[in-house]
Write a protein that binds this DNA or RNA. Structure first.
Lengths: 336, 336
DNA sequence: ATGAAAGCGCTAACAC
DNA sequence: GTGTTAGCGCTTTCAT
């Protein structure tokens, strides 16, 4: 079988403690002893067994990252940067997908086993904060996004209202006067959608317009395909607009297609904004102006806050905002 | 601290063995005993500690999935379906990203620690099979894709030559006569690209054409952005073609933009095919005809082969092919 | 600076 | 069917 610490100890003629010290780079080991042990390690090809270590220390070096679905570009981006930030702190990431269903989310936060991960970063889609607050009390939790967030738990998000206001204002400042919003869920809009709609409405009202409920184009799901349907159907039903704030990039991509199918020009006839600044927005034609959350800052803080708690921090939940910006591209350019 | 097996045992007035039997659903436990123990478990809120179990059994219930980058849609799709298949077999998935660099790949296959995962599914980008064969001999490995694959290791891929032949033939059958290939790496094409180019060439030759090296449009990286550049530059340099086989969907999306920027109509002027059938291909305008690997089959076999070995199977490396199909969409339709 | 031994939480012989 | 006990591989007091 595998080489154990004890094998190395015997091979080197020292105690397990000494080998352990060398493996973990403990300071107080004499150079010659260190070298002697290191040789034994190399000769035997010894690799410390993580699980044995874990059992002894109580730390696994694993973080769980839970969200709806990695195939949604925003979450892929999130996984990428969280894994990266975790890694530079010596942690690995376990992916947990919830499918965006309450069952999936419950499964994830109510683990039937303990000790696997040291903490969890979770972006809920549907679970409310009351339920979240009662779950997974065994390990630290950091919540991402604007859905559920018990006061007892750390959370980080961007200011959705403000970002939506800025996107909408951008369209207004370019002379658009009839601005629609697309991509929120048809049945029971998520908190995310509600906040973005609120910001959209606020920008309109700030500019002296009144928000028209007719201009809210709901989508059957958070996907580009359903946005194609929804926006297409709205246009076919006679709805007209010269600006379109989309709930997310997928909706924007779908809207682009729906508009182009019907010979509307973007941005000439309709200017469009997306949300998340996913890689695809740079290469569509036209490319898409999009709200860009600072993913690196988001992930950095999320991991840091989590590891704070892993190392014993026990204050109240910290609720923080991550920066964002509006990346202006062809679908809603800044015109001079 | 946390409730342990022993706490439950004491609380229920039975031995640890009995509690363990109940927890693991061991058959030979009397109903009343099971109930009594279960009550104790519920009262104390006991959750088995995975690491303790692991150390005792030698199994972690964890699989590593390693590839370049989850933000590439194909890999996101892969992560999704592998995680899903693993889960239904009682395993969780640890994400490992290599950035597509040799350092990243080495880091992944030469783990400085052991015992974390029971096995690993790895899609190499650059590592050769000789090097791969010498790595990670401690745990079972299944290789995905057409890059490195030691004979001693299980591997699964699709028939790239045949798929490329079919995509190209599709364009030929629609009357296209001057067909280019785009998206392979400019400096040292990957084995993947070479196989796809071989299939492309074969289709051309089968149809009595001669493959023209001029029509190979290399890209500086595997990304949509660099495909925009490469295809755009080729056109600007005077290259003309009426069909375009792209190495992957990202290249196809980039090509679409490059063509549309220059007022070429797709598919009228140029018919385009992609590869991977990633979700985006259904919602671009035009939507993209694409080679669709059977991801479910791929993931199912990969996980099954891996778990075979985890449970002791020790035969030669099995090299298998997963099915694929050509999904015809607007960018290269079938015309009557 | 190094060694001896206890234990992290669980499973699996082996006994009863 | 249930209890006893010896590890799994490592870390960590506590001695020396």
């Amino acid at each position: 079988m595998a080489v154990r610490l004890q094998d190395v100890a015997e091979h080197a003629g020292v105690s397990m403690k000494t080998v352990s010290n060398v493996v973990r780079n403990y300071a107080h080991v004499s150079p010659q002893m260190r070298e002697r042990v290191q040789r034994a390690i190399d000769e035997l090809g010894y690799r410390p067994n993580i699980m044995g270590r874990r059992l002894a220390t109580g730390r696994t070096g694993l973080l769980a990252l839970a969200f709806a679905d990695v195939t949604l570009p925003y979450f892929a981006e999130l996984a990428r940067v969280v894994a990266d930030e975790a890694e530079r702190r010596g942690y690995r990431v376990l992916l947990e997908q919830t499918e965006g269903t309450i069952e999936g989310e419950r499964a994830v936060v109510s683990a039937g086993e303990s000790g696997l991960v040291d903490g969890m970063i979770f972006q809920p889609s549907v679970m409310n904060s009351a339920e979240l607050a009662q779950s997974r009390t065994d390990i630290p939790l950091v919540v991402l996004g604007e859905n559920a967030a018990p006061l007892t738990v750390d959370r980080i998000m961007i200011d959705n209202v403000e970002a939506a206001r800025i996107a909408t204002q951008h369209l207004l400042s370019q002379g658009r006067t009839r601005i629609a919003f697309a991509g929120h869920e048809a049945s029971g809009p998520s908190r995310t959608s509600l906040l973005r709609i609120a910001g959209y409405q606020q920008a309109l009202e700030d500019a002296g317009h009144t928000a028209d409920p007719q201009l809210l184009i709901a989508s059957s799901a958070v996907s580009a395909g359903s946005a194609v349907q929804a926006v297409g159907a709205a246009i076919d039903a006679g709805l007209r607009f010269d600006g379109l704030v989309c709930r997310d990039d997928l909706a924007a991509i779908g809207a682009l297609r729906a508009l182009q199918e019907r010979d509307f020009r973007v941005p000439e006839d309709v200017a469009v904004t997306g949300w998340d600044n996913t890689p695809m927005t740079a290469v569509t034609y036209p490319s898409i102006t999009s709200i860009a959350p600072d993913m690196r800052a988001l992930a950095t803080r999320a991991v840091d806050m989590l590891l704070d708690r892993v190392s014993g921090f026990d204050g109240m939940g910290r609720h923080e905002l991550a920066p964002f910006s509006l990346v202006v591209r062809e679908s809603a350019p800044t015109m001079s």
